[in-house]
Design a protein around this nucleic acid. Structure first.
Lengths: 168, 168
DNA sequence: CTGCTTCCTCAAGTGTACTTGAGGTCAAGA
DNA sequence: TCTTGACCTCAAGTACACTTGAGGAAGCAG
């Protein structure tokens, strides 16, 4: 009756991986992964099954938001490190996270706005074919740092602080 | 004098890979890669060296813009396919691209704005800990399609059109 | 007790976007 | 002539964010 799919709980109201996965909208394997990466935490039952404090859901939500923004997990981890996983989570902690994220969002919105401007200007007038277009010749080199894919401008800026290649 | 670093050109004013790389702000290997992926084109000298029409620079610029936005190369390829690589490039072609991109940018800006709103609301009031938060429980499943990483919402939307998990 | 589902671990695979390295060609300058 | 630097190809490596698969244990329903 009260348990069409209310499974294997039988003790606290903590969540199983399956429940977490359903509720957070991610795969079970993703939660395993996040845990292995130190982004979320769980305790184990005697049978070695994971149990999650409901507050971990909040963390997963935040991680997902960040992913939507294209923010790498390493950065997410740093930010989340400010909010202790177990124990007394203060609202202020989350508000701190919110503010950091807001800045990130603002930064990206600004970038998008600038990009749109560039598109309108450069494409509209054809100046992309000329050398003085800021998109055309952003920095005279950008492509020789590090291995693997580079995600978004934030990363480059940290390495050698090359002024924003898309600056007006 | 006029050629402190004006190298191996000796015929047309087309660009070598090295020149392209410098001007576009990418690594030579990246240009090789883009070419292999069908995003840009070159012709070869007798020595089998690549030469690029200057217009290819425009393409690289566009690709880079798209990358900044996190748009996968596959999508970029589709869009660029509208603009023939060699031959008569009409300004209208590029304006078409510009418009598609603009939509993309607008979409993303809207998403960012909504995310910011969610952060302010959910984090500020703590509703992420409740089940009726749209971020908290986006779709009840999202994590079981396809392999590999999923980049951004656009991809999911195409697969099964799950209504935007971040809709208000 | 059988069957089903959920869970566990660990290793390996996947997709995207590149980079790195080995081994070699080609042309111009000291 | 020798060396240097730019170029070539092709295979393999790398980073990120996961997923898949093998092999097995736990727990509840009938």
């Amino acid at each position: 009756m009260s348990g069409t799919r209310g499974p294997r709980r039988m003790r606290s109201n903590d969540l199983t991986v399956g429940e977490m996965a359903r509720r957070a909208g991610v795969a079970v394997s993703t939660l395993h992964y996040y845990e292995a990466e130190g982004l979320i935490q769980s305790w184990r039952t005697e049978a070695n099954h994971r149990r999650y404090d409901r507050r971990e859901l909040r963390r997963v939500a935040v991680i997902r938001i960040a992913q939507t923004l294209g923010i790498p997990l390493a950065q997410v981890r740093e930010v989340l490190a400010q909010v202790p996983s177990g124990g007394a989570v203060r609202k202020a902690d989350w508000q701190g996270v919110s503010e950091i994220w807001r800045e990130e969002i603002d930064r990206r919105m600004e970038l998008l706005a600038r990009l749109r401007g560039q598109l309108d200007h450069c494409m509209g007038c054809g100046c992309l074919s000329l050398e003085n277009c800021p998109l055309y010749n952003p920095q005279d080199r950008l492509g020789d740092n590090g291995s693997g894919p580079r995600r978004w401008l934030g990363e480059e800026e940290e390495r050698e602080a090359p002024p924003d290649p898309l600056a007006p």
